[in-house]
């Protein structure tokens, strides 16, 4: 049982990658990339988890700092990841919008050449 969350993370990541490979729509491909990224968040947060340990925040309500908390490092990484992945998803969607407008299609399989 102690590897179960890691296996879920691996599964989510691979399902996302599989979705990108068999995608017939650029928006679908971008969403699949987000799914694959969700796998990495799951792995990060699972690595930092500890049973019966509170979150690593001692300010509300004020508590005495203790070492028995979940790992803050991986949580900080997951947090910045989420925001950055949001903006990168926006960038990819903007590219999809332009492809749909310029080439009049949204299937990545038909993307043969670059065109202005």
């Amino acid at each position: 049982m102690t590897v179960y969350p890691y296996l879920v993370a691996v599964f989510v990541f691979l399902v996302g990658a599989f979705g990108i490979v068999r995608s017939r729509n650029l928006i679908h491909a971008v969403v699949c990339l987000s799914v694959a990224q969700a796998g990495t968040y799951l792995l990060l947060v699972a690595v930092g988890f500890q049973w019966k340990a509170p979150p690593p925040v001692f300010g509300s309500p004020p508590t005495k700092p203790t070492l028995k908390v979940t790992d803050p490092l991986v949580q900080a990484m997951a947090l910045t990841d989420v925001v950055v992945s949001g903006t990168v998803t926006a960038l990819l969607l903007a590219i999809a919008v332009q492809v749909a407008k310029r080439q009049d299609m949204s299937d990545p399989n038909e993307l043969a050449a670059l065109r202005g």
Binding site: M1, A46, F49, W51, P56, V69
Partner: peptide
């Protein structure tokens, strides 16, 4: 193992 008590980065960061 998941949920274990070994977290060296935490021990340094806190």
């Amino acid at each position: 193992g998941f949920g274990g008590s070994r977290h060296p980065y935490r021990d340094a960061a806190v």
